[in-house]
């Protein structure tokens, strides 16, 4: 557990650091699935997040006046983390992120190479190949991956700047289904570990943070909530509560009771 304790102390006051960039907020949010860009902007502002994931897509040739994400989520205010959603091979991922780098100049990227529905589980063979190609091309790669400690270590050794195992399938809202594996990955890692995918509500984010994650990435749970702005605030507090609880150190679980009030000085 030493690795975790040291990490907690290193991260205490200054938030967390990835690839030399500091972030006070340990909540990273996605910008997809919102009903409109106004809600996207408001929810993200209220979440307190400083880093947001974005996707790269063709501009609409027919509707040139369609509102653009950058008009609502200012890249000067938020760190854009371009993703490779929709890429199924290393070549596609590299091609997409080169374009993202040209569009915004960002080297820090989120690599995700997914398998087919219904799991959309990370395709680790393809992810490893893509990570290698991207690192060679000068990218700083935060990588979405399986809850596989061996693969996570390999990605770190390769030079990925953050390891992002799933808590449960993307958009499932099932919460952290694999706490032991997540904790093992955290204990083995010297780079930040983020739970990416699976969070359903604030409790899940708090739980992920209590396991010792450096940050949590949430999209669907906020965007698809009945009230996304309120859920964004809830996630913000969930992440803070979980981190504080982790740093504070929880009491051990025991099977017997232990009274909270003194058993001496009772009136007779």
């Amino acid at each position: 557990m030493d690795g975790i304790t040291q990490k907690a102390h290193a991260g205490d006051l200054g938030g967390w650091t990835v690839a030399g960039r500091n972030f006070a907020s340990r909540l990273v949010v996605g910008t997809g699935k919102y009903k409109d860009l106004e809600t996207t902007a408001e929810a993200i502002a209220q979440s307190g997040a400083e880093m947001v994931t974005v996707a790269l897509r063709r501009v609409n040739v027919h509707d040139r006046n369609a509102p653009m994400l950058q008009d609502f989520v200012d890249p000067k205010r938020y760190t854009y983390l371009p993703n490779t959603a929709g890429c199924f091979t290393a070549d596609e991922a590299v091609r997409t992120l080169r374009l993202a780098r040209e569009a915004g100049g960002w080297n820090l990227v989120k690599l995700e190479v997914l398998g087919p529905p219904p799991t959309l589980y990370p395709d680790m063979a393809a992810t490893l190949l893509a990570a290698e190609a991207l690192i060679k091309d000068g990218f700083e790669v935060m990588v979405y991956c399986a809850d596989d400690p061996v693969a996570a270590k390999r990605l770190e050794d390769m030079g990925c700047v953050a390891i992002m195992p799933l808590g449960a399938p993307i958009g499932s809202g099932l919460g952290v289904q694999n706490p032991v594996m997540i904790q093992t990955i955290i204990e083995n890692a010297k780079v930040p570990v983020l739970v990416d995918a699976g969070v359903g509500t604030a409790w899940d984010a708090a739980y992920a943070m209590e396991l010792g994650c450096d940050a949590v990435l949430v999209n669907s749970a906020i965007a698809m909530a009945d009230d996304p702005v309120k859920m964004a605030v809830a996630m913000k507090h969930g992440v803070i509560a979980g981190r504080l609880a982790f740093e504070a150190g929880r009491i051990p679980r025991k099977s017997s009771a232990s009274a909270s009030s003194p058993m001496t000085g009772l009136i007779r």
Partner: peptide, 10 residues
């Protein structure tokens, strides 16, 4: 030509 920009994504 491929002309791309950023859109919402997770």
């Amino acid at each position: 030509l491929e002309i791309v920009h950023f859109v919402g994504g997770g």
